[in-house]
């Protein structure tokens, strides 16, 4: 079982269904079974409350088109806490979505994230949080791994998946290594050799997940980070799918 825990459904068709069909065509060629999807028809960094509605409705349509293979995450924004909580109730508490996506609306150590994380904890679903450390400079509202550690310490019962391993993965992985409620996904950067081995060495395989960040990234280049890693096959199986199945309760 291969689960891609980090997929977006935009840019390849006018409808959610068209995007799903396009992605699955290529996922099939690489043996990827399930796609955990988030965000909407475009990448809105600072969505209004109304746009959050639209983006999550887009995700819901995608799930309806192929419920057996598309897993949805609610796109939540600390700029619109009430709306985010409402969407979580509608799409997670009442199903079928399996977790939260928080991107770059605010840095994730912002107190506005707290009620969202508290509700996710109550619902017992993981939070996929974008992080990057860019030597070219982060966006002002873009979270770093250190920001996520702050948030995770405030919410020790919550489960986080740190997207992109922090971009600068050596730094990102070491930053979160002692925070047990943070796992990482490997997606979103070039397929730099050693990334997965490094994550396994410092976090243990049970805290590492395969993701691609399609459509921006290639299923193939990101899958290679796990397929090509010099790790035991039992670790590889965990990273490719077992961890996602456990965390997202698939």
């Amino acid at each position: 079982m291969i689960v891609d825990c980090h997929v977006h459904l935009h840019g390849n068709g006018e409808t959610p269904a068209a995007n799903v069909d396009f992605r699955l065509k290529y996922a099939d060629r690489l043996g990827i079974d399930l796609l955990v999807c988030s965000l909407g028809e475009s990448l809105r960094r600072q969505p209004t409350a109304q746009e959050l509605e639209l983006d999550n409705a887009w995700g819901m349509e995608a799930i309806k088109h192929c419920p057996q293979r598309i897993i949805g995450l609610v796109y939540a924004s600390p700029n619109h806490v009430d709306k985010s909580l409402q969407l979580m109730e509608r799409y997670i508490a009442n199903g079928p979505m399996k977790g939260l996506k928080m991107w770059v609306c605010r840095r994730c150590n912002d107190p506005n994230c707290d009620p969202i994380v508290e509700y996710a904890t109550e619902l017992d679903v993981p939070i996929q949080q974008h992080t990057w450390i860019k030597s070219t400079g982060n966006m002002p509202t873009e979270s770093t791994p250190a920001d996520l550690v702050e948030l995770a310490r405030r919410h020790p019962a919550a489960q986080f998946v740190m997207a992109h391993s922090g971009g600068n993965w050596e730094c990102g992985i070491r930053t979160v290594s002692h925070q047990p409620n943070i796992a990482v996904d490997v997606c979103g950067g070039d397929p730099e050799a050693g990334q997965t081995e490094y994550a396994v060495a410092f976090l243990g395989a049970q805290r590492v997940l395969y993701g691609s960040d399609a459509s921006g990234r290639s299923f193939a280049s990101q899958l290679a980070k796990v397929i090509g890693a010099e790790i035991p096959d039992s670790d590889r199986r965990m990273i490719l799918g077992d961890n996602a199945v456990r965390m997202f309760k698939l």
Binding site: D190, A193, F219, A220, S221, K225, I227, G228
Partner: peptide
């Protein structure tokens, strides 16, 4: 520098 498998999987 990169995993050799990446280009092969592409």
């Amino acid at each position: 520098y990169q995993y050799m498998d990446a280009a092969l999987l592409k």
